[in-house]
Nucleic acid binder design. Structure first.
Lengths: 194, 194
DNA sequence: CTGTTATTTCAATAATTTCTGAAAATTCAA
DNA sequence: TTGAATTTTCAGAAATTATTGAAATAACAG
């Protein structure tokens, strides 16, 4: 099964980008191939289409399954495993966000938490710890937000994204409402929480 | 200048994570060191603190400058170059977002655009192109949103993030207002655009 | 200029990662 | 059971990437 030039181009590109995205070339290529494919493919088809070894295919699939970006599918009357990517591109986005967070962010957040428990021994450590706290708080804010947004359905998420900078106007409106309702100035003053 | 255990831990962690973030260990370590440091450091100080070669330090700094994550600073009466990370952590976030986009996303978007211009030769290509269009449209939506949010000041950005899932409620409110104003059902039906 | 200090470049080597082929393990029909 | 088909594992080879030391270049004080 020779790849059409269209597919070929995309597959090679994903292979090259793979490195930047934290996977190797083969993994990028396998993903791209499955993403474009009309129907699930088995390991031999992938092996042949990409011109790689069967064992390489096996490892690549394993990694993509660990990322939850590829699923096994069984086809009636065929012993071989077939593979496909999720159809819903919004779901792919969610999975990617979750997995990258798990691999790239959570370990750092965890280390920061531990480090912030230590009592600083001198001014230098005090400053370092202060910087770490800034980083920690920002990451927590971001991941908390991401958690919340994750829960939105495709429609709401699409709406939020389409809003773009309009979000800013919406925030203004919200602030005005808050002011009206509470007779106070806008802003996120913790002391106002009560 | 031996590193305090606190700093050491963080620096080593960033070195290890570097790989996942698309830079090598040394680059991760240099960044972490500068991020925590009270004052700008020169290349020799970095070299000694991390126990690496002077040339390695030079290359690492160069890469971090290309990422705009490290800046040169000059110190009165000292010929050597000193380096520091930006102070404002929100700004660091913006820079990271921009640079990652430039390296990881824009090339793909560009390839997708080109590929979508090609007339599909058969059903297989038609399907592949359809998938590429889904990906293209989603990425455009995301990057467009990111562009807009980039422009927000720290305060508004913080507010938006703190809002979290509250965004959903806000969208509901917006939809109700829209319905009220237009006497139509909520949603983003393209046909409504007129 | 000249010599000294500081920085960068780059070819060689070290370290790491990726890929393969062969063998082992698994699955399942007969 | 047996044995054919399929998948996985893994040690070593190949490829890639990171790091170094030495040499070249740049910057500048005297």
């Amino acid at each position: 099964m020779a790849l059409s030039p269209l597919v070929q181009t995309f597959v090679l590109h994903f292979g090259e980008m793979g490195g930047r995205w934290g996977v190797n070339r083969t993994v990028g290529q396998i993903y791209a191939l499955l993403f474009l494919s009309d129907e699930p493919l088995n390991a031999d088809q992938i092996t042949e289409a990409l011109g790689i070894s069967r064992s390489n295919t096996s490892m690549g699939i394993k990694e993509l399954e660990a990322w939850r970006l590829v699923r096994k599918r069984h086809i009636q009357g065929d012993r071989r495993d077939y593979f496909q990517t999720p159809d819903d591109i919004w779901q792919i986005l969610r999975i990617l966000a979750e997995e990258r967070r798990k691999r790239e962010i959570d370990p750092t957040l965890s280390l920061l938490r531990d480090t912030l428990m230590v009592k600083p021994a001198n001014d230098l450590e005090r400053h370092a710890q202060d910087r770490m706290r800034q980083m920690h708080d920002l990451i927590e804010l971001l991941t908390g937000w991401a958690d919340d947004v994750q829960k939105l359905d495709n429609e709401s998420l699409g709406q939020l994204l389409a809003l773009g900078a309009g979000v800013s106007r919406l925030l203004d409106v919200k602030n005005k409402i808050t002011v009206f309702a509470r007779g106070k100035r806008p802003g996120r003053d913790p002391k106002e929480a009560a």
